[in-house]
Design a protein around this nucleic acid. Structure first.
Length: 769
DNA sequence: CGTATATATCTTTTT
DNA sequence: GATATATACG
């Protein structure tokens, strides 16, 4: 471990060889390459200002990725640094992958040797080399949030804290926030004490960290936090990295948290060649500890920093830009930036479609119909996306897309590695890789059923704690005693022997075969073969797929890292398909046409977010809306439903306030009159929108003239919905009969006979007699 | 020790 | 409506 920078980990040939003709020799003469000359003045400045701190404020669609890749290519092509002397951090694996591909296209395979990856991936790479400095072994396990939660529950139980009153999830949040801010237990000050468990959160945090060390494991936050600790406690290690990284680039800087900021600042302190690219209007991760303030702090910490603004948008039509700008202007807390179109003589483009529908199914039907319409006019489905606020909204669209046979892919959906059978298989592999992994041990001791019940595991726990050893070691000791029933004892002995055998085979057998053998030997495959449930065959398929996929890996440790860090499924982008994903997942992407369903109060802006964080959360939700709109090059379709099923219950909903915040002249509002039978939905919806629009400050209804409904707009007489009072018996299409218990302007609270208490717009009910 | 039934909680967003 | 945990019973 003498030289952490030994080249053996850098798969680069020692001499720097430029790509096949792509780039001239280092310190090139002659005209600059096309990927520089094709940039506009600001972009070019951002690329060519290589020395000193640079902050690039780049609005949506202003060519941010282009600048980043050109900057990397420029540094390499000019020979300012070797690829392994350049550190480039992103937030998502997808962004990292894309950047590597694009830099490779410019400068060739040398790009492979760049330190390019997510904060977490880079963090792991560094931590594996210096694990001992924080009490871990180099082969430590990375825990996912599931393991993390189980571990926290154990820690709480050991401290006999009532998990009913204090859910472990809450503690996880508290600890995560501390870690996001770079606080190890010893740095949490008295003033930071959390409410959790009557102020015992800090003690629990401490205990949790101790347990992690025992398990030789780290959670996500640790990947960076430990790095910080190492840098702060071992100046010589820090100095090595400071010398190594001559240039540092950061993507999506607005989403860095304090820990990441400190990490960056330490690493760049010496050379000060730090380039951060971000957009405060696209900051959508404050719930994960992101601090937009890091953008402001940048200029303070690096007083001579050059600030470059990219405001020319090359992506969207002027209509879309205008709508997005108008919406985001409702935020008070922003640096202020004007996006203008970067292309001359471009047409305004189609108006934004806003559509109100009856319920979620209707919405899905409309969206897919529109998609088919676009497709008929030659639109490639790869360039169409449906962006939802939250994962649960995807289901309805999936169903409809399947029904109609429109191909789609879910991005960031239910993850392969999170399936139960895959997690079981992974637990076996983890235990082979790292015998201290008690969480994995507990998961599989009795899977398949071996007659090892809770009481046996308890005995093992007691011994493990008494002797301060991992469960696997405790088991080995226990089977030497006669404390266990003979049958249990021999089962465990067999299991331990199996693991010993597998561990020796690990060296010689390819991973695919090793996995197949382990699962077969353990009886795990047998278990699913005998399972009569309908999903069992699918699980076996998944396990087969899992084993096959392992053939790409030659090291078990490397694969396990991949699983922990790159939880996403590799989408087969080759096929033409509509993308379905969350708004968060869509950041950094662009499409010709974008569908934004579910623009309803409670859903978007999300109520829980508002409950927790009030005004700040509202602004973040609005930024999310801004991100959604600005993903589109040509068309934006926004929709909202009057009724939605949440859990198993129907709820009525109001259009999102964000709809009101769109500029009237760029919007085409549609409501299909007559489509809802004669019960007058469209009438009700019009009156609802009109009234609600009037009530909302800055609303558009008073000014705008939508083609479809405008004429009836102001005409709907107030009395037509009025006349309903407390105590009236009313009828609602979905909820049935009920009694009105409260009236708040046009909103009613009704106690339905079947559906319980609901809040409903008055226009959706009729008086019953 | 294993299985069956009841129940509570879940749906904000991700590495 | 689905899944994970709690409880009772065999």
């Amino acid at each position: 471990m003498s030289d952490p920078f030994a080249l053996d980990e850098d798969p680069t040939p020692a001499p720097f060889t430029p790509a096949r003709g792509a780039v001239a020799a280092p310190v090139s003469m002659g005209p600059p390459p096309a990927w520089i000359t094709s940039l506009n003045a600001e972009q070019r400045e951002a690329v060519e200002t290589t020395e000193g701190p640079v902050l690039v404020l780049s609005g949506a669609g202003t060519g941010k990725t282009r600048v980043l890749t050109a900057r990397l290519a420029n540094i390499l092509a000019k020979g300012l640094a070797k690829p392994w002397q350049v550190l480039s951090v992103t937030f998502t694996n997808r962004a990292a992958r894309e950047m590597r591909e694009r830099v490779s296209a410019l400068v060739g395979p040398v790009a492979e040797a760049l330190w390019l990856g997510t904060f977490h991936a880079i963090g792991v790479r560094i931590l594996r080399r210096h694990a001992e400095a924080v009490g871990l072994k180099s082969n430590f396990t990375i825990l996912d949030s599931d393991d993390q939660l189980r571990l926290l529950k154990q820690v709480m139980e050991a401290d006999s804290i009532d998990s009913k009153k204090w859910p472990a999830q809450g503690l996880m949040g508290v600890i995560q926030r501390w870690k996001d801010r770079g606080l190890t237990p010893d740095k949490v000050t008295a003033g930071e004490k959390s409410e959790f468990a009557a102020g015992r959160a800090l003690a629990l945090y401490s205990a949790y960290q101790d347990r992690l060390k025992q398990l030789n494991a780290a959670d996500f936050g640790d990947l960076l936090l430990h790095g910080l600790t190492i840098f702060q406690s071992q100046p010589e290690v820090l100095a090595q990295y400071q010398d190594q990284f001559r240039y540092i680039l950061v993507d999506e800087y607005q989403d860095t948290n304090v820990a990441q900021y400190l990490w960056l600042r330490l690493l760049s302190q010496k050379q000060k060649n730090l380039c951060c690219v971000g957009d405060d209007d696209q900051s959508i991760y404050s719930w994960r500890g992101a601090e937009v303030g890091n953008i402001l702090r940048f200029e303070k910490d690096f007083p001579n920093a050059k600030v470059i603004r990219l405001e020319s948008n090359y992506r969207s039509t002027p209509t879309i830009l205008a709508a997005a700008s108008h919406l985001i202007a409702h935020n008070e807390d922003r640096l202020g930036k004007t996006l203008r179109t970067g292309r001359d003589g471009i047409e305004d483009g189609e108006q934004i479609e806003v559509r109100g529908v009856w319920d979620g199914a209707e919405e899905a039907r409309w969206v897919v119909e529109e998609i088919e319409g676009l497709q008929r006019r030659g639109q490639k489905l790869n360039n169409v996306a449906i962006l939802v606020r939250a994962g649960f909204q995807m289901l309805e669209f999936e169903e409809r897309l399947i029904q109609t046979g429109v191909p789609y892919r879910v991005i960031g959906g239910p993850r392969f590695y999170e399936r139960l059978e895959i997690r079981d298989a992974l637990a076996y592999l983890r235990l082979i890789n790292q015998p201290d992994d008690d969480l994995a041990f507990e998961r599989i001791v009795n899977k398949p059923k071996r007659g090892i019940g809770e009481s046996t595991v308890q005995k093992l726990h007691v011994l493990a704690r008494a002797q301060n050893v991992p469960l696997m070691e405790a088991t080995l000791r226990m089977i030497e005693t006669d404390e266990l029933r003979p049958q249990v004892r021999s089962t465990l002995r067999d299991l331990m022997a199996s693991f010993a055998r597998w561990r020796t085979m690990r060296e010689t057998l390819p991973l695919t075969e090793l996995t197949a053998l382990v699962l077969e030997d353990a009886g795990y495959l047998e278990m699913w073969k005998n399972d009569k449930s309908p999903e069992a065959p699918g699980r076996l398929d998944n396990l087969r797929e899992f084993a096959t996929g392992l053939s790409e890996w030659d090291s078990l440790a490397g694969f396990l890292d991949h699983v922990s860090l790159v939880m996403e499924n590799e989408a087969n982008a080759a096929d033409e398909a509509v993308s379905l994903m969350t708004l968060h997942g869509a950041k950094g992407l662009e499409f010709d046409a974008v569908f934004l369903p579910g623009w309803e109060e409670e859903i978007f802006p999300n109520r829980r977010a508002l409950d927790e964080n009030g005004q700040a959360a509202l602004e973040e939700e609005r930024r999310l809306a801004y991100v959604g709109i600005t993903r589109a090059r040509q068309r934006v379709f926004i929709s909202f439903a009057a009724n939605r099923r949440v859990f198993a219950q129907w709820q009525s909903s109001l259009p999102s306030r964000f709809i009101d915040e769109l500029p009237k002249e760029n919007v085409r509002l549609q409501s299909d009159a007559g489509q809802f039978g004669n019960r007058g939905f469209s009438e009700g919806w019009q009156s609802m929108t009109a009234k609600w629009g009037n009530a909302a400050p800055g609303g558009f209804s008073s000014q705008r003239r939508p083609p479809v409904v405008d004429t009836k707009w102001e005409v709907v007489p107030r009395e037509s919905q009025g006349g309903i009072d407390i105590g009236d018996r009313v009828f609602h299409q979905k909820f049935g009969y009920g009694i009105v218990t409260a009236v708040d302007d046009c909103k009613l609270e009704i106690n339905f006979e079947k559906a319980g208490v609901k809040r409903v717009m008055d226009s959706f009910v009729t008086l019953a007699h």
